[in-house]
Structure formats: C-alpha cells, structure tokens
Nucleic acid binder design. Structure first.
Lengths: 408, 408
DNA sequence: AAATATTTGGGCACGAGGAGCACAAATCCC
DNA sequence: GGGATTTGTGCTCCTCGTGCCCAAATATTT
C-alpha cells in the first residue's frame, strides 16, 4: 500500500520536490532558460527565482547570459548544471573488462578509463585491487575537487540493492560477495555507494542518455556473456522487492531446453546467451568477445552459417520479447550488448516473430530499436544511479553547506 | 521521465496529499483513532485535526467516542469512514455471469447481485441490457442516496484504460466495443466510469481486501475461461503504456505448443486455461464452469485421471510463474479463479516446480497463496477502481460542496 | 534615433498550510 | 481525590508559493 508509509507532507516537502524537479530537468535535458523552467514546472517566475537562487548558492547550477533569441522581451538567463561542482564516480566490473568513469551533473563524461581483463573466475579481492589500480588517476581527480556526490557500481551479477551484496555472479564465479562494502572500504571516499546489476544500469542509461530518452515504458534486453534486462515503468526502473527484478535471462522460454547454470532449464539465456550463439554457429563457445565479433562480421559479410545462426537467435529473441511485451505493454524495446550489434542484421526477423507472437493490442505503439550507448551503457547507468540521491533531494546537499557557513 | 510533467508542487498539493493519505488509510485499514492517524502520517495533532475537520464537513468521515482502551490519557475519538455517504457502483461482465454491487467507503459491501448467463458470444448491446436489468434495484438505491462517487466495470477482455474500449474479448466475441461509453449512456449517472480487465481488478481486490493486503510486490494470476493476471509493484498496479499490461495468459511458455486464439502458439493460456485443463482430464472441453467443478471434485475424491490432469496443470503453472518471479521478484504470488480452487490439491507441485525453475535469489522471500475473495474478486476490484479518484483527491469532492454552500 | 510593444527579473505583501507551544479535558492508577 | 498521562483546542510562527507592480532588456515600429 503506497499510503502505508506515505508519511504526511509538509511545506518543506514541496520545496524539496520543486528543487528536485529543476535539478533533474537540467541534468536530463541540459541547460535551459529560467523562463523555460517556468513553463516546464508550471511554477511562477517568483518561485523559480527563489529556487534557482538556492541552487546557485549551493554551486549546483550557474546562470549566464543566453544567446540572443531574436524574440522581443528581456532575455532570460540560461541556467546550466555545473558539471564540475557535482560529479559521481562510476565503476564497472564486467566479465572481460573493468572500467572507471567520472561523470558530471548534466551527464558530461569527464573521464572514462577501460581495461580488458582475462576472462576467468577471479577472486573478488583481486578484482577490487585491479579496479582500484585502474581508478587511481580518477581518484586523484575526485579527491582534489571535493565535488563527489556519489559512487555507482555496475556488476555482472545479481545484486541485493539494500547492501550491495552480489548474491550470485556465475560468470565471475562469485556468490554472496559484499562488493559494496569491499569497494567502500578500498576507496575510502566520503560519498554514498550503490551497487546494481549491469543490465539494470544499461537500461537506466539508455533511458536517460540513449535510445529511450523520455519514453515512459521501456523494455531493455542486453546480451553479454549472460542475458539481462531492465524494465522502465512510467519512467521509473522496476526494482522488485529485494532489487532482483528483471532477471529476464532466466525466463523459461523453452521448458524442454538445455540445462542452465541457474539450475533451471530452457532459460532465455540458454537460447540467446553468448555460448548459445557461438554454439549455433558451430564456433568455439568459449571464444568470448573476440569470437562473437568474428561471428557478427562473418554474418555481415553474408557467410551462410553465421547468418543462419543469428536468424535462430533472432527467432528466440522475438519469442522472449513477445512474453515481455505482453506482460509490460511497453512503447519501446531497446536491444543492448550483442543484440545492439546484431540488430542491423536481424532486426527484421525479431520484429516478425514479435508480431506473430504478441497480442495486437500490446504491440500497437511498439518500436524495437538498438541501444545507442554500446559497451558504455552499464557504466553510464552506474553514474546515473549515483546521481539519483542528489536528484531526488538536492536540498540535502544544500543544508549542510549553510550550516557550515553559519558555523564558520 | 517522471520529472517531465512533474509539474511544480504548491502548498495546495500538500493539503491534497495529506487528505488523500488519511482517507486512503481509513478506507484500507478501517476506523482508527485520531492519535493513530497522527502516528501513521507523522503529522502533528494540529494538522490532523484540521484535516479531519475538513473531511467531517464533507461527510466523508465521522468522529465518535472510542471504546475505553484501558490506557491512561484522554481518549482519542474514533474516525470512521462513512460507508453510506460515499459509495461506488461496481459491475462485472464475465463469460458466464453478470454481477452488480454497491460498495461503500471503507469496503462495506452494501449489496451484491449476481446472475448466471448462458455461455455464448453475445452482442454487447444485449449484455448491456441484461446488466442494466440486473442493476435496476441497485440503481434505485444509488439514485436515492446521492452518495455515488464512481462506477467501476470489470470485463473479461483487453481494455484500453483511457476510454474504456474493449479492444478484444475472445471469450465474449467482442472486438473494439466501446463498453465504457455504452454503459455510461445506459446508466445515465452523474459519476465517472472506469473499465478494466477482470484479472487486473481481481489482483487489485486481493491486494486491497484479500490475500495480499499490505504486500508491496505481488504477482496475481487468475484462471477463468482465459488466463489473466495483475502485478503490483511497490503497492501500485502495473498498467502499462496503454493499460494492456500483465497479459500473462499470453506469455509464450511452450514455443512448439498449441495454437492460441490470439494468433500465437504455446501461450500459457493454451496450457493452463479452462479448455486445456478439461482436455488434459479427458473431459468435455466446452463443459464450462460445471465441468470444471466436477473435475476438481473428482480430483479431491482422489480420482486418478483428474489428479494427473491437475498435476500437469500445476507443472505448467509453476513454469509460467517461474518466469514471472524472475521478472518481478515479488514477495507474494496469489492464485485466483480456478487456481484458487485447485490450490489445496496442487499447491505443493506448483511450489516444487517454481523452486526448480526460478532463481534462488528471486524466490527467497516468496510465498504462494490462494486468493481469498473467490469469484467476487473482480467485482470488488472494480469497486476499488471506482474509489481511486476519491482516494487520490478527496479535496475535489469537498471543494464543489463548499462552492455550492457559498453560492446558495 | 526615439517611441512602443513584449518579455522577463526583482521586490514585496498575501495566503495556504503545517509546526509548535501552552493549556484544558478526559482517562487511569494509587 | 490527587497525580500521571495522553490527547484535543486555540493560538502564533514559519515555510513557501502566488500575485501584483515596477524596472530592465530586447525587438519592432515610427
């Protein structure tokens, strides 16, 4: 019941919500004039003025003369999110690569370092150490500026949102690894840290910065070593009771199919995961990313076996998507990871199967598109996750400063 | 993006939200003392007093002496939703029955009339006429009291929420029937009318009044002639872009399975729908409700063929549920309709299959229970749907009255 | 070049609405 | 019956958005 802890509202709540709306708007849609913000929020000029004033005082935004618009009237100053004054640190632990990024308010990518990693079941302590080494320059930068507002971590596994424990990451060989605590200790930064699944975050990134911007209801499916996904409902990501939602890779699509590492059989992942794709093409199923790249290239060249394998994959992709479309009635399906790369080759097949298998009503407004962010989707999503606290309550960052001033 | 039309908040918004929280709390959890409301909302006594005063003036709630509590301190008056002063009309159009109910604020069922209907593809105009005839006594009652705040309609078909058009109801033989407009015209009542799918509403009812009260994340699956469902996420029902979400009956669970009326094949409905169940048991698959009742009784008596058939159904039920559990990570699965009735016989099998097929993390906190509302779930959900407008903005009902007073 | 129209920012009084405090009322316990 | 406890009542205060007037800055017209 929403009302259950729908704690009573007070005047302060209104302020918080309005500040949040403005910062979020600027973060997601870029610099805007004050008068545009008046239109978007429906607030009065007076109210906007006060709110912007508060945000300027907190160094979250800056006002500057806007370019001449060619229209009569006093020009409205441009309000710009201060990308240097509020930044997040984003980390990614994938099966075959590590990455570190610093992203500023408004979405500017200040730096992004990626390092390949041999594919193997690796001890979590080693991974944390490797990540820390890769992150050193970024950490120096972050420590100098004092602008850090949050840390986001993307990991290829099932993550308990509440405490950042990786419950199970078959492709890393992890089980119940307290990655959140380990990284928080190792980084020793004074900022909240959140961990989430890479596919969840990939979907978040596509929704904020990629192919699904401003779309309210989205299904995102990403193929890497495993198959993961994310669902956006009314603009908000589906999280589930404990944060494990949208594990679409383990939907049962073929009850008599192959055994899956999860213990079930015929999971979507056993039909369209990386191993399954390589197997269908008669290639080394442990060939990893390189083998996949060659397969896609071969198919693009028109090589028959490769094309046929991808067609089969597309069929199973369509079947699983039909289930998701009937369950979520989204207006957009975004394909990420491997599926993003093979979309030009097999998009038509996916859509055909989807049309055969989903309810006419459910697919009425539906489009299927490839993602736009490529391999960076998860880490950009981790950045967005880290910004979430600031976006939903910018006032929390403002008050302490005021106190500090009052105290000094 | 939630923020997109997150129109700015104003002081009035706070009042609205607080009134809504109180009325919703009373509607869902029954009469409570003022001081309990203070605890629940976190508002001050002063604020609660003002809010309750407004609701009393609007006749939505009444205050009365509470029973002696045995504790020291001045007794806090009991605040009670006025079940007679705010009522909704609920209607149901099922494949083999029609029903009409009047439900009061707080959930009291003032009357409930149900009439069986021969199973046949029936013209929508006839159904509306039959429903109107059945509703006559209820309509008289509603017209006398002037307390009607909304009308809710449950229908066994896919419904566009925005305008109440039944896009497709295979078991009624309807396609693009403007049921909302037809009923609004026929009833000629001065209250908003909403139409929704019966399974969606069954889930809503179980969440508000039945087996899933106060559970935030719930998957509800209902078997009638077709198979439908509803998903509650964070306390709010999943609706989808156009309102067609949670069409779980057409998840693809068996890609090589039987053709389904929807045009796909191997839909969940073709494995666990009424026809499929009767076929598995070697009975007349057009025997309808009566045949189902006999089958369940036979299985309860221990008749082998019947038991075996239900076991098969339970297996497929578990397979489909595994997909839903992996996708939604709910804390509760509620089985409604036929599945509610067979739960005592096959619940163990369902849970076994579910355990085999779903991710350990996803099913950690999971329980599977039968519904508690039986065949009345959909119409009770229709009542809840009709109350929604009042609950989310009680002030809208208050203001006009004040105006009327001011004008007179 | 000057006057006018248009749009927007700034200042300030107002109103809505919850918080907080002092006090009174109603109950239980000794 | 007196004290402790809890809660309702009346009142002022604080927060925050609204609304109005005026000034500032730009485009257009004369």
């Amino acid at each position: 019941m929403t009302s259950r802890d729908a704690i009573g509202q007070r005047s302060e709540t209104v302020r918080r919500a309005n500040l949040s709306a403005i910062v979020r708007e600027l973060h997601l849609h870029g610099p805007q004039s004050r008068s545009e913000l008046v239109l978007r929020t429906g607030l009065t000029r007076s109210a906007i003025r006060g709110l912007i004033g508060e945000l300027v005082a907190a160094d979250l935004v800056a006002e500057e003369r806007s370019a001449p618009a060619g229209t009569p009237g006093r020009p409205s100053p441009l309000v710009r999110p201060r990308s240097e004054e509020a930044v997040v640190l984003a980390l990614e632990t994938n099966v075959d690569s590590l990455a570190v990024a610093i992203v500023g308010l408004g979405g500017a990518i200040h730096r992004l370092d990626r390092a390949d990693r041999p594919r193997a079941h690796v001890d979590a302590t080693e991974v944390v150490a490797d990540l820390l080494a890769l992150a050193r320059p970024a950490l120096d930068e972050v420590r100098r500026s004092e602008a850090l507002v949050g840390i986001g971590v993307a990991v290829a596994g099932i993550v308990r949102r509440s405490d950042g424990v990786v419950r199970h990451a078959p492709n890393l060989g992890w089980r119940d690894v307290p990655l959140g605590d380990m990284l928080a200790d190792a980084l020793a930064l004074d900022a909240p840290l959140w961990v989430a699944n890479e596919a969840d975050l990939g979907g978040l990134a596509e929704n904020r910065r990629g192919a699904a911007v401003d779309v309210e209801d989205v299904v995102y499916v990403m193929g890497e070593v495993g198959v993961g996904g994310n669902v956006t409902i009314g603009g908000a990501p589906l999280v589930g009771g404990a944060g494990y939602a949208a594990e679409v890779g383990h939907m049962v699509v073929n009850p008599d199919g192959q055994a899956c590492a999860c213990g079930s059989r015929g999971c979507w992942e056993t039909e369209i995961g990386e191993r399954a794709i390589l197997l269908r093409a008669g290639r080394d199923f442990e060939g990893g990313r390189e083998a996949m790249r060659e397969l896609v290239e071969a198919a693009a060249r028109g090589e028959e076996a490769a094309r046929a394998a991808l067609e089969e994959v597309a069929t199973w992709l369509g079947i699983g998507l039909a289930t998701l479309v009937n369950v979520f009635n989204p207006s957009l399906v975004v394909l990420g990871g491997v599926f993003e790369r093979i979309h030009p080759l097999v998009g038509a097949t996916v859509e055909r199967v989807l049309t055969e298998r989903s309810l006419p009503a459910s697919r009425e407004q539906l489009r299927v598109v490839p993602g736009r962010l490529g391999e960076d989707a998860p880490i950009l999503g981790a950045a967005e996750l880290a910004f979430e606290e600031l976006l939903s309550d910018p006032a929390a960052r403002i008050r302490p400063r005021e106190l500090a001033v009052a105290g000094g």
